[in-house]
Amino acid sequence: MKTSLLAISLLVLALAAGAQEQAFTNRATDLKANPDGATVKALPENTAVKVLQRAGGWTRVDAGGQAGWVRVFHLRFPAVAESGSTSSGANALSGLGSALGFGRQKSQNTTIATTGIRGLSAEEMKNASPDAAALQKLQSYRADNAAAERFAREGKLNPQKVSYAEERR
């Protein structure tokens, strides 16, 4: 009983971590034993891989039964919601699709706001009356500097000196 419970929670964890994510190489690239390590094998463009893990600029993948590391930017991720494919990747993401509000606005097919934009419709905003009490509640969750610093120490987050590289365009 305990074992099966553990198995289930591991499965959930694996799904949650996107372990079944399907990707393809977007150029000819190398599968490495370790990030920046020796080449295990050469992968042609459009090689299907499964994402296992991410670490910095590298992604650990399963390429046809062989695990290794590929550069993050050498992978492309197809739009599962539109592919209509029945691959395991699509199955893993079918729950994702429903969680993304596809059901809600089916007529538009996909109405997903990406980072930096908005999912609230113009209509919803027009009819909304401002909720000052909710604003106050939101602001009551603020963290002060001390709390944020403590939190960072607990996570072993070490600040780095990095400047913007915006001049290069």
């Binding site: 991720f77 739009a79 538009q108």
Partner: peptide, 16 residues
């Protein structure tokens, strides 16, 4: 990369 999978990247189907 997650959003690329979800959004139908470049398909223009989104209102966004």
């Amino acid at each position: 990369q997650l959003l690329a999978q979800v959004k139908g990247d470049g398909g223009g189907a989104s209102i966004f």
